[in-house]
Design a protein around this nucleic acid. Sequence first.
DNA 1: AATGGGACCTGCGCGC
DNA 2: TGCGCGCAGGTCCCAT
Length: 267
Amino acid sequence: MPELPEVETIKKDLEKVLLGRRIKEVIVNSKKVIKQPVSVQEFRKKLIGNSFKEVLRRGKVLIFKLKEKLYLVIHLRISGWILFGNQEENARVVFVLDNNKHLNYMDTRLLGELRVVSDYTTLNFIKQLGPEIFDMNLEEFKNMIKKKKKKIKVLLMDQSFIAGIGNIYSAETLFRAKIKPTRLASSLNDKEITSLFNSIKEVLQEAIKFRGSSVDSYRDIEGREGKMEERLKVYGRENKPCFVCKTPIKRIELGGRGTYFCPHCQR
DNA sequence: AATGGGACCTGCGCGC
DNA sequence: TGCGCGCAGGTCCCAT
């Protein structure tokens, strides 16, 4: 489900309700999502009694600091999301807080993962992440792009290149920059790279402002849909007219993922 | 280095 | 109505 804007929305909302709260109980309904420690009992033991000190986001990963050398790390993958408030029957994992509110980890497809670790920076899916786009400058971005021969859409989704961009926002970003997703990264000229760089930041910022896209299961922590979905220009719009030129939006497969673009506007 | 396929999962919508 | 298929916001692993 969630790309950077959705995870950022969750992060900011959770900060308001979680900081300072103590974990009273942890109920694990689906042990499959508990990856570390492998034992559910150990997982619960490490969490119960601890308080939330800080909520962080790195790429698409949510990180909760509990104390020095203790972090709860949640990777939502495709269908994970968080519902805060009352206890949910369908929750895969429930964290009961000292004010009797519940943090429900929801995940229909069970592909997400929860870990309790003493150092999250050594986790593979954190360690391998590229920079956050908001921390980069144009020159760095240019240099990185020019070295790569991957198709630009595939490169944008590569988390070791830039952290946080997924299938929706890579498509939206390329539409805004008027670049065809099949172009090789190394073939982009300076003007296109500049446009792409700005588009990424604009699209992600807009998506954060509108609290993410609820194409499928994603909801915010109060269960509300994001408002970015209705602003998407190409994602999921196969055969529908381009908002700019009316040409039907095309869907192709790239890197095993459905890829949408306007064959007229994007070159 | 880049690409393609499959695996991990469940559930939805569509065509027949 | 029922069933099979394709598809889904992510990532990892393997083979070429």
